[in-house]
Write a protein that binds this DNA or RNA. Structure first.
Length: 115
RNA sequence: GAAAGUAGUCGGAUAAUCGCGCUUGAAAAAGUGAGGAAAGUCCGUGCAUCCAAGGACAUAUCUCCGGAGAAACUCCGGACGGCGUGAGCCGGUGGAAAGUGCCACAGAAAUGAAAAGCGAACACUACACAAGUUUUGCAAGACUGCCGAUGGAAGUAAUUCACAGGCGAUGGUGCAACGGUGAGGUAAGAGCAUCACCAGCGAUAUCGAGAGAUAUCGGCUAGGUAAACCCAGAUAGGAUGCAAGAUAGAUCUGAAGGCUAUAAAGGUUGUCCACCAACUUCUAAGUUAUCGCUUGAGAUUAUGAGUAAUCAUAAUACUAGACAGAUGAUUAUCUAGAAACAGAACACGGCUUAUGAGCUACUUUCAUUA
RNA sequence: CGGGAUGUGGCGCAGCUUGGUAGCGCACCUCGCUUGGGACGAGGGGGUCGCACGUUCAAAUCGUGUCAUCCCGA
């Protein structure tokens, strides 16, 4: 898990982020970007791989962990999120079974889209 | 040496860097962190709340015997049946001489077996006869087949008879035709108070705790289907599942109408009796925390009892407990050049299914050599 | 976590209760009709009933297990 101030937690935060409908797609990963506001130190980030993507829990967990690890390394490099409140990454079936390098590149490309 | 069977084991390891959950601690830090199936949810329980604590019927589940177990579509040992050359494996395995139903097609007949048909009159088709169709009647005396002993008829006789009589063998149909195969026997035949072997039924004796096994005798035979209804026996308080539920805090508001009669409607198990509760309109609020939560019908080791499942006693350690939900990423080396199936969400006992590369023990069959 | 349903030609559905013949519509192929096409008419092909085992003389149908898909409740 990410450090506690980076976690996107409750149901209202998730649905609020989805409602903005500001999304980007790359290699089986969809990124939803939430509102912007001043005085935000760290963005809240959530990861979703639904049961419809794959039936087996092991494969869903694997994709989620790879995405989380990639984001963790990016945060460590002091990436500038430009005062974004919340971000959600949704894994789709095209991303299943890919290596860490492929996932990492996709997420880096997606995060460049934030303005 | 090859091919099998059974039981068990293993379920990646090491190092470096960057990280996560929980516990302890003031902090630094230390400890600890998925499975053999955690899966499917197919059974059975604990635990929790609510209803009932009264009765009847219905309903559901189970079904060889003994034992184990909290219970189980559970396990162990045995019996019987089936499969396999064998080691072994598989089996929802009570009752069809209580009753009902079903057994397609074929066949005379599918279960009180047997009608393998026959005769006559009238009508129709037809010129008529022959022949056919239809209708009606008949009940073991008749018909097809086998036989011609006995009796009868014909004939000198051999012999013949759609004569009486005897028989249910043979042929055909079908999964199945009121025991099977062979011999004797007979005119031909037949379980035929004839025989041998076998199946089945009943009785008796012996062995066994029992399922059952073995032997002898008897009469001389009763179709299949209960994973069709059913019968018999046994068992079962019901509903809802940890998002159960408990505690604390916040909220849970306020107002008006209705609450007499009839009918209808809700809940408690499917029904009945019986019992319990209540509605409508306007209006207000709603991102909580802790417990339940892991010390247990537990685990490991040893000893004892038992064929075994399992049980008893003693010692040892405490070993995930999250809540957008922890076990990860990268690199290198190795087993084996690329590690399968797969992720705890209250817990436990089973069953079922998925699974890479090997290893160990015992057993069987075949081949080769001595 | 709990509950329910479905699986049958290429597609959508009957048949299962009460076991013996797998059928209907659309689509497909051939022929006819037409100057040609469509429509119409006639004829034809194609499925072993998701999979496995069992009960039975006989299974799409009955029983058990298993796989997949869909839906509902908290």
């Amino acid at each position: 898990m990410l450090p506690e101030n980076y976690r996107l937690k409750n149901k209202y935060a998730f649905s609020a982020t989805y409602k903005i409908q500001n999304s980007f797609y790359k290699n089986g990963i969809i990124m939803f970007v939430g509102k912007k506001s001043e005085n935000i130190i760290s963005p809240k980030i959530g990861f979703v791989v639904s049961k419809k993507t794959h039936k087996r829990a092991v494969k869903r967990n694997r994709l989620k962990r790879l995405m989380r690890e990639s984001v963790r390394l990016i945060i460590k490099d002091n990436f500038d999120f430009k005062n974004t409140q919340s971000i959600i990454f949704v894994g789709k079936s095209q991303a299943l079974g890919k290596s860490f390098d492929e996932i990492n590149n996709s997420i880096k490309l997606l995060l460049k889209e934030i303005n």
